[in-house]
């Protein structure tokens, strides 16, 4: 009974929990570096009517573009390599080498190559998500059994139909997991990248408030970036529920949340 309640209102419950901890910290630390959460929320709402919304929109656009490019390119290459072992033999080691590199270290290079504006930031985030998607879709495809290919071939499927009915649907649940993992990293990296050569973006907003020693505004910015992350996660959840209903059914039997 209680568990069902928690599940239904899990976001609200989690937010309340965080707010209470925040308030307690505020009371204990007694320094303006941790402002009153309720005051911060009020400022946050005021700022939304000002320019905070624009900063959020700019950051969101950068992330959404990166996701679209990375899923398309990473997914296509990943599925292809998964299906063609001889290419994977060739490119696999290269990917293995590049995958764990901290992509953020290449920000200066990207800024020189792609300019200081949006492009270099989008390229940076795209690279992070790209490798995660590529590796998971490739491994998911490699894990498909020979029998499942025989089964679909025996029904008369051609190459494209095999991708459409078997390879892509099998990779989708793992693709969503990969997205969740890489989105977290992407937002932190975006936060960092938005400190350079831009006057828009939530990262800029936070660091700008910080240099102005306006901690309430800074925390309002932190609320905004958290909500941005939450929003993207929720979108991914909905997309997963729509495209991978079958996989969630299997999960439901084993897990509570």
């Amino acid at each position: 009974m209680i568990i069902r309640y928690l599940k239904q209102f899990k976001t609200i419950y989690a937010s309340l929990f965080v707010l209470i901890i925040w308030y307690i910290l505020h009371l204990i630390i007694k320094s303006n570096i941790i402002p009153n959460p309720f005051q911060t929320i009020l400022v946050f709402i005021q700022l939304l009517q000002d320019d905070l919304l624009i900063h959020l929109a700019v950051s969101l656009t950068r992330i959404v573009f990166s996701i679209i490019i990375a899923v398309f390119c990473g997914g296509t290459i990943g599925l292809y390599l998964g299906m063609h072992e001889k290419y994977d033999l060739f490119f696999g080691p290269v990917i293995y080498l590049l995958f764990p590199l901290p992509k953020i270290a290449f920000l200066p290079v990207f800024m020189i190559l792609f300019g200081l504006g949006n492009t270099s930031k989008i390229v940076l985030i795209t690279t992070i998500i790209f490798f995660q998607i590529l590796v998971t879709t490739r491994d998911s495809t490699k894990g498909l059994s020979r029998e499942i290919f025989y089964s679909i071939s025996s029904l008369g499927a051609n190459k494209w139909q095999i991708y459409k009915h078997v390879v892509i649907p099998a990779a989708l649940p793992k693709l969503f997991t990969a997205l969740r993992i890489s989105i977290g990293t992407s937002i932190s990296v975006l936060f960092f990248a938005e400190n350079y050569a831009t006057t828009y973006g939530i990262g800029y907003f936070i660091m700008d408030s910080w240099t102005r020693v306006d901690y309430v505004e800074m925390f309002a910015g932190i609320i905004a970036i958290s909500l941005l992350g939450l929003f993207i996660f929720k979108i991914i959840d909905y997309a997963e529920r729509y495209f991978c209903k079958w996989a969630l059914l299997e999960k439901k039997d084993s897990a509570l949340f």
Binding site: E147, I148, Y150, S151, I152, G156, H165, P169, A170
Partner: peptide, 19 residues
């Protein structure tokens, strides 16, 4: 090649779980 008028039921992997 496979034949249009042959129906096949394989040992394990008959049905696609996502359909």
């Amino acid at each position: 090649d496979i034949r249009d008028k042959t129906g096949v039921i394989l040992q394990n992997y008959g049905l696609l779980p996502w359909k």
